[in-house]
Design a protein around this nucleic acid. Sequence first.
DNA 1: TTCACGATTTCGAATAATACGATATCGGAC
DNA 2: GTCCGATATCGTATTATTCGAAATCGTGAA
Lengths: 144, 144
Amino acid sequence: MKSEIVPPSVGGALLALQRATHATLHLIATELVDLDLSPSEINALANLADGVGRTVSQLGAAVGAKPTTLTSVLDRLERRGHVTRSTRAGDRRSVLIELTDSGREAAAVITRTLADIEHRALGALPPEAVAGFHAVLNALTTEG
Amino acid sequence: MKSEIVPPSVGGALLALQRATHATLHLIATELVDLDLSPSEINALANLADGVGRTVSQLGAAVGAKPTTLTSVLDRLERRGHVTRSTRAGDRRSVLIELTDSGREAAAVITRTLADIEHRALGALPPEAVAGFHAVLNALTTEG
DNA sequence: TTCACGATTTCGAATAATACGATATCGGAC
DNA sequence: GTCCGATATCGTATTATTCGAAATCGTGAA
């Protein structure tokens, strides 16, 4: 199943990152096919799974996309009854995104599946490798 | 510039991966705006930068996408004169994708920029962290 | 030699992803 | 009160992605 480690090349980290992302998105889509949600819908619900309401800007920052990208994603989630949009108290420009009951259920399935995939893929790796992974991701996310 | 390390949560690796990918794609797009190439065109050229011709299937495996996804990407690159498509010797079903001179130049700019970004973001991290990053990516890419 | 089956790539169609520029509204500082 | 930046969405356009179908091809078994 698992092939040998591919030696990294200079500048290859970003290519490997994109490849791994594509691979995991395929895997996630397969395992969550019953939910009938798009990758971005899954991502948004997963980020909201902690039950904390967020503005569109906050959610965008969490997933790494601009608010305008999220408009249609949230339209579909709202239509499915998974999230509500409300005016945020104290700032009527902002829209508060919150999970509904069905959204919480979907989010729970999603986070369980993500945790399962993660455990299966990374369970045999030393904790230092996983810590290094997170350090690199953080460095890449904040570079610029 | 760089904020504090965010503590990872169970199942959070895949979310962090997607977020980092979005962040780096934004950064890459900004730094390579003069090339006027889409993210997938950049990714394809970067994967071909070693000068080795590849079939559509091979390129798809490298970037983590299906061949059919690459059809329009390669159409555009071919139209821009950056790649050629030819019949592969020994198997006429396969199409060989090769860089042209202009494709090689573009690929060189891309790999230089990717290496630069990588060095700026990761240069201060210990080599073990970067090695751990690659180990995790490999594990995720081959899981399933 | 023939045939069946899987491999290869593209096509056409559909949905999703992404962002730009514009818009309307809002909030805060002066 | 005014000005400027913030917020989210709209409309638009391009790109990303895949499915199913199609045509062609290559290989192995009978």
